[in-house]
């Protein structure tokens, strides 16, 4: 199979899209943010449980459906964000955005992104960047919010998180 696709659809990504981690409703969430991608119909609702003392993400869960890139990206994100403070999660978000939009040169992609770096191939497919960022839009909304639920739609032209 073609080299680019091997890179885009690596086995870790396919594994996460088939068996997304932290998938399912989170009991008693502090915030829930649901987002959809109107161009393709993908939907993701992300719930966070925030420990108010430490201001840390104590629990995370997501529901929804989407293409393999969308599901894998959200699944990998939940693994990474658990246990992080709001500030740390915000920094992760910036690192991911830099990688996925291609603003960060390949050699400078932070090691801290871990398995999320496997998604760097997406930057070669501009029309798929929005797939990879849907869960992250939800994270950004959830971090900005102190409690309750919110809904948004992603502007397909807007790659910025």
């Amino acid at each position: 199979m073609d080299v680019d696709f091997e890179e885009l659809y690596q086995s870790v990504i396919l594994d996460h899209s088939r068996k997304p981690r932290n998938f399912g409703p989170l009991p008693d969430p502090t915030v829930t943010v649901a987002g959809d991608n109107p161009t393709c119909g993908d939907e993701i609702a992300l719930s966070l449980k925030i420990d108010p003392q430490a201001d840390k993400v104590a629990g995370v869960g997501f529901t929804g459906s989407g293409c393999s890139i969308c599901m894998a990206s959200a699944s990998l994100m939940t693994l990474k964000v658990k246990g992080k403070t709001r500030a740390e999660a915000g920094a992760l978000l910036n690192d991911f955005q830099g990688m996925i939009t291609g603003k960060t040169p390949e050699a400078e992609i932070p090691k801290a992104l871990g398995d999320l770096r496997l998604l760097s191939g997406v930057r070669k497919f501009p029309q798929r960047v929005k797939c990879a960022t849907l869960g992250w839009h939800a994270l950004k909304g959830a971090l900005a919010q102190t409690e309750g639920a919110a809904k948004f739609s992603v502007d397909p032209k807007d790659a910025d998180l």
């Binding site: 696709f5 885009l8 393709c40 293409c67 393999s68």
Partner: peptide
């Protein structure tokens, strides 16, 4: 088990 967008991206390839 294959999302239409994944299918169309790969067919494009």
């Amino acid at each position: 088990d294959v999302h239409a967008h994944d299918l169309v991206t790969m067919a494009d390839g």
